[in-house]
């Protein structure tokens, strides 16, 4: 094992898969000469040349479409959105083409493409640059939605995503690019390295009193809250689903059967989305095990304000997680 940063893990996954498969290429704004807006693709242009590391103009709908078209006839593009906020101008290509072509062609054509980039609020980037986009994409059948929180998960899941024969919405986190964590040693030449399967949750912390389901950036907020709660004698079990679609409901339900309480913590808005979906799945499968209504900590139901004093209150905080857990465990 080695310790590397999240952004390095993303880069390693891309590089290993490009090395392995000639059909893999990466395109997006500033991925090449600039070395990536968030330095994720640093060094890749030198290593793989501008045939495979392609700087695009600001034309998300165009290059998302080019990626999909190329995937339809045999390439395996990775399309980087500088941030997921800019994917909305390519929404039509993703939802109407990438997600639909396999079925509407009667299964003749597959679309092996990865759309990836940082998701969610950064710091004070305000209204138009702070979207947690998972609710928009996870409601669409025909795609995977992946949202890893640790370096190891991001690497293993990105490798799987690149090898997948289907479109993948791959959500990274700007605020966690610098997070360090253990990953397996670099694979020997020609070896596969670690691949992590879609639809398998990971228990990040074991506990008996309350299950907390979370992913992406809030994962770290939850771990911090769980530490504090443990000191007060409340042991939380933290379940990171890692993929939003498919969702590993079995692992979540198993945990709830043990703890009899559940809180879902996410950055996206409270109306709908995976947060609501998880609540629905748990109540329908584990109703008899629940000792309290399922709690939820979400981003507040407002466009993201710029001012830091307000932004801090909009995002899930350690305090809000603690309150929610105390609420469902009836301790206050």
């Amino acid at each position: 094992m080695r310790t590397i940063r999240y952004r390095d893990a993303v880069r390693e996954a891309i590089a290993e898969e490009m090395e392995r498969d000639e059909r893999v290429l990466i395109m997006g704004e500033e991925v090449g000469h600039y070395q990536g807006a968030y330095k994720v693709t640093e060094g890749l242009l030198d290593r793989f040349t501008d045939k495979r590391v392609i700087d695009t103009p600001i034309a998300e709908a165009g290059f998302a479409g080019i990626g999909i078209g190329a995937a339809m006839v045999g390439l395996r593009p990775i399309v980087e959105f500088m941030t997921w906020n800019f994917s909305f101008v390519a929404f039509d290509q993703i939802v109407q083409n990438a997600a639909k072509i396999h079925q509407m062609s009667g299964g003749q054509i597959s679309v092996p493409i990865v759309f990836r980039g940082p998701n969610g609020a950064a710091r004070q980037v305000s209204s138009q640059h702070s979207h947690a986009v998972e609710p928009f994409y996870c409601s669409v059948p025909g795609m995977y939605v992946v949202a890893p929180s640790t370096p190891r998960d991001v690497k293993g899941l990105l490798k799987t995503s690149i090898r997948s024969n289907n479109p993948v919405i791959f959500l990274e986190g700007e605020t966690i690019y610098g997070v360090k964590g253990e990953v397996p040693d670099l694979p020997e030449d020609g070896a596969d390295g670690e691949l992590i399967a879609f639809g398998k949750a990971r228990i990040a912390r074991e506990g008996t009193d309350c299950t907390i389901v979370t992913w992406g950036s809030p994962y770290y907020t939850v771990l911090e809250a769980a530490e504090v709660l443990a000191k007060e004698g409340i042991e939380c079990e933290v379940v990171d689903p890692r993929t939003i679609r498919p969702l590993d409901v079995d692992t979540i339900v198993k945990s709830v059967e043990k703890t009899n309480r559940c809180v879902v913590v996410h950055e996206h808005w409270p109306y709908g989305g995976p947060g609501a979906e998880i609540v629905d799945q748990v109540q329908s499968r584990a109703f008899d095990y629940l000792d309290a209504p399922i709690g939820r900590v979400a981003g507040l139901d407002v466009p993201m304000p710029y001012a830091t004093n307000l932004e801090e209150t909009v995002l899930p905080t350690v305090e809000r997680v603690i309150d929610a857990v105390k609420g469902v465990t009836y301790r206050s």
């Binding site: 305000s126 304000p305 710029y306």
Partner: peptide, 9 residues
């Protein structure tokens, strides 16, 4: 913009 928009807005 009442501190809600910031530099870009």
């Amino acid at each position: 913009s009442r501190g809600l928009g910031g530099s870009m807005h």
